[in-house]
Each structure stands twice: as structure tokens, then as C-alpha cells.
Design a protein around this nucleic acid. Structure first.
Lengths: 151, 151
DNA sequence: AGTTTCTGTCAACTACTGCGGATGAAAAGG
DNA sequence: CCTTTTCATCCGCAGTAGTTGACAGAAACT
């Protein structure tokens, strides 16, 4: 069917890649779609394939079912609306920024699932982190060796 | 795989029938799934079939795709999360009660799309409507002749 | 009465979501 | 160096989301 794409189903790819980047800030250690799919399966008990994950991330498929939406939302710890509600996405992205800035595995997953802080609170927290980083004369995030993982 | 149904996809049938009942309070004038599907198609430009609508309302199918979710949410004027987020559903249902109580086509669709009032505000509005109804000695809603429709 | 329209329901079909299994390239590890 | 693992990408298939077209019963109309 050649139905013009409904607005809801437009930005899945961007949202998904943003989540992946947020969960694995260090590009060097970031797993491929194969390993990622396996992790999702183990952690959520749901089923998702590496191929489909890639198709979603590259925008080749975008009209997913509620079940797959739930699996993804469950794994990344975001509300399902994140994938199509701009307002929710904006707030969550703020939290992701904070989590990335803190660069600690435990705090990161906590923050991703918190969903309780206002954008203003998150903004000031981000500013505090920036200030602390400047005082300690740290390089801009990106080339700092990542932590060794461990659930 | 026999994956147990994810929690997200459980109450679609109830939500859908609730929406239909809210939009057409008078059972006598309520259209069947055939006419309803046609209305949805005309109003939203999306595609949905009468049979599928029935399958959803009776719980025979429940794992719909984002595109169909968008069509339904668009037609009924509710946020897409209504179908799987209990918190949103509760708030919207309050609005639907109010709209049904007022029994005016225009106000009804307006209220369905408002999404701005708190549950407390809606509660007091509902109480006011009840009080007004009692003072006017109206019969309990249900057998009042419905308005003649018109977009 | 008969006829026409609408209802819910089902079975057969189509189309696309979602997956397994290739492929070659590039790391990693020996 | 070679071998093994992991990567992105593709092709084709299975299963199911979603449609079409039928059916009989119940209204509504004449």
C-alpha cells in the first residue's frame, strides 16, 4: 500500500540510534547490532534480531508493532512514547545527556529509568557537571577511556 | 516462539470499545464496525477495515502496528499512549465521562482533544454536572434522545 | 407478506513485519 | 602469517498484521 507515512512513524531511526549512543558512549566499545540484539534478548526476555535492529536504525523499516516497541522501551529503560512523542523524547534525551556526562554505568541506568526530574532540574545538574569538569581541567568528553562494564 | 504476551498489548479491546461508547453514547444510533471503519477512513485519510476493527474490539488481534495506532488515536482524538499507558487512559477516560455527560457533539470532540485539565479539575466538573442534573430532575443518562449529527 | 440495508462473524487472501542465513570486509587474537 | 570472531549489509523466507469478500440473521422500509 502506498499510504503516505503517518507522522508517528517517522523518527524511529534517530530515536533508536540516540539511545544506543547514550547507552554506549564510547564508540570503540559499542557493540554491533548482533551483540546488541543478544543483550536485549537476555535482558528483556523478548525476541529481536540483529537484522531487524539494523533495519530500524537505518530507517529501512519503521512501522513496528507494539510488542517490539515494548521490548525496545523495556531494554533502554524509556517509556514507549519516547519513540513517537517529541515532548517525552526531549525530556528523556536531557536525562541521557546527564547520564552520559556522569559516565558511570550504575548512575546511567538509574537516570535512564528515573523519569522524575523536570527539564529545569536536569539543566542545572548538567551545568554543575560542566562546571566541575572545567575545574578539574578535564578534556571534553569523548576520548576518556570508558569504564569496564559489569551489571 | 511462544513468547508470553508483553504487558503493553493487553487492554486494547477494552480501550477501543470505551472510545466507541464514548463517541456514540446512544446505543441505538451507534454504527456498526462497517460504518465506523468508513468514517475513520474518511476523517483520517488512513486505512482500516471493518473486520480488523472488530478483531481488535473483541480481542482477537491486539498487536497492532504504529501506523494503525496512529489512525485510531487520530480519529478518536486521544494521544496514542492512551492505548497502553494506564495513567493517560485514566485521565482521558475522565474527560470522556465529562463529554458524555454534557451530551453535546461539539463540546464532546473538543473535550476529547483538550488533554489539558487535571484529574481533580475534571472530578469537580463532573460533580457539578451531576448536581445540575439532579436539580433539573433529569433521568439518568442513557435514554435521552441524542442530537442529530453533523460535522 | 417481500425487499433492501445493515449487523456481526468467518475464511481466504495479500502485504509487510520480523527473522535466519548467507556474504565479504575488517578487527582481534594466535 | 593464518584463523576466528565480529561487523554491516543483503536476500529470501515464515508468520502474522490487516484486507477483501462472502455468509446468515436482524432490523428497517414498502
Amino acid at each position: 500500500m502506498v499510504t503516505g507515512p503517518r507522522p508517528l512513524v517517522r523518527q524511529i531511526d534517530q530515536r533508536l540510534t540516540a539511545l544506543i549512543a547514550a547507552l554506549y558512549p564510547d564508540e570503540r566499545k559499542r557493540p554491533g547490532f548482533g551483540r546488541l540484539a543478544q543483550e536485549i534478548r537476555e535482558k528483556t526476555g523478548g525476541t529481536i534480531s540483529a537484522t531487524y535492529l539494523w533495519e530500524l536504525a537505518t530507517g529501512k523499516k519503521r512501522n513496528l508493532t507494539l510488542e517490539q516497541l515494548d521490548v525496545l522501551a523495556d531494554f533502554f529503560g524509556v517509556p514507549p512514547e519516547y519513540f513517537f512523542n517529541d515532548q517525552v523524547a526531549e525530556r528523556v534525551d536531557k536525562q541521557l545527556q546527564l547520564a552520559t556526562a556522569l559516565r558511570d554505568q550504575r548512575i546511567r541506568s538509574l537516570a535512564m529509568r528515573a523519569e522524575g526530574l523536570s527539564p529545569e532540574a536536569l539543566d542545572s545538574l548538567l551545568k554543575m557537571v560542566d562546571a566541575a569538569r572545567a575545574m578539574q581541567d578535564l578534556r571534553p568528553m569523548g576520548d576518556i577511556p570508558a569504564d569496564s562494564d559489569g551489571e
